[in-house]
């Protein structure tokens, strides 16, 4: 009977199995392929090959550039909206929030395709010179809802009394915003950055569709390497994937540093 005794720990088993098969195992495989050659011998040439090629490095920098720009734009557009929704006394703010988040309910590829048609209609798609702009527009369009949501949650939870205290102590509204509202909404900002920056470095569906296949970002490069048919296709692809993983770790570590360390109530904290 003892063997059949059910403990609460057992509830985690399905996830543990899932984790092992679909997260840990692929990671091990990536690491394995990244450090071996076509014959299975240890080598670092996959990495050196990657960094030796100026095209590859350009693509890497470009990916981060696009991601950075998209993230900044998302924050610049999303923060005021989230602030208004959370702090104003609008009776219908719930409905408004829903409108902003509604695009998330529509399939991502479908949304991107629709965006393409829209850009086409505006004459921005065919001009041939706006691929990067189109890509960034697409990224911002796709990731704006996930920017607004965490910001909204954090701003809404801000203690009104703390902001009043700032005003009470002689701070004009702008000073209060910069020195109190903004620092206190940092958890939401970090959360939003995570939600936007990460996927926009790699989601080549957007850059492919809206950049007319002329904008190659790192995700696309990895795909190309894996599908190249060369003898070392998996090794080369895995090495880039690993480089990307490490770079993202570094980025998240840096952005996480901006967050107040002991504010454990923040969403997504402890993830990075």
């Amino acid at each position: 009977m003892n063997a059949l005794k059910f403990s609460r720990k057992n509830l985690g088993i399905p996830y543990a199995v899932f984790l092992a098969v679909f997260v840990i195992l692929p990671l091990i495989l990536i690491v394995y392929y990244a450090f071996t050659d076509a014959n299975g011998a240890f080598t670092l040439s996959n990495f050196t090959n990657f960094f030796k090629s100026p095209t590859n490095v350009t693509i890497l920098i470009r990916s981060f550039g696009i991601a950075f720009l998209s993230t900044v734009l998302c924050l610049v557009i999303g923060y005021p909206v989230a602030y208004l929704l959370a702090r104003s006394n609008l009776k219908k703010s719930g409905v408004l929030l829903m409108l902003f988040v509604l695009p998330m309910w529509i399939n991502f590829v479908l949304r991107t395709a629709a965006m393409k048609e829209l850009l086409y209609f505006l004459g921005m798609y065919e001009s041939g010179k706006l691929h990067y702009l189109n890509t960034v527009i697409g990224m911002v369009y796709d990731y704006l809802p996930v920017t607004i949501l965490p910001l909204y949650t954090v701003i809404q939870k801000l203690d009104k009394n703390v902001l009043e205290a700032s005003s009470d102590l002689g701070a004009k509204p702008l000073y209060t915003f910069i020195n109190t509202t903004l620092p206190l909404s940092m958890p939401g900002i970090v959360s939003a950055i995570t939600m936007v920056f990460l996927p926009s470095t790699t989601s080549y569906v957007i850059s492919d569709t809206l950049g007319n296949s002329k904008v190659t970002i790192i995700g696309k490069l990895i795909e190309n390497k894996f599908n190249s048919g060369a003898a070392d296709s998996w090794q080369a692809g895995s090495a880039i994937a690993l480089v990307l993983l490490l770079l993202i770790f570094v980025t998240m570590f840096i952005s996480g540093k901006f967050q107040n360390d002991d504010d454990s109530s923040a969403r997504g904290n402890g993830l990075w």
Binding site: D159, N161, V162, E164, A165, S166, D168, L169, T180, P183, L184, M186, N260, D263
Partner: peptide, 12 residues
């Protein structure tokens, strides 16, 4: 100047 019921200190 005001002293608030729930302190309202700046947590950051």
């Amino acid at each position: 100047n005001t002293v608030f019921q729930r302190y309202a200190l700046f947590p950051h």
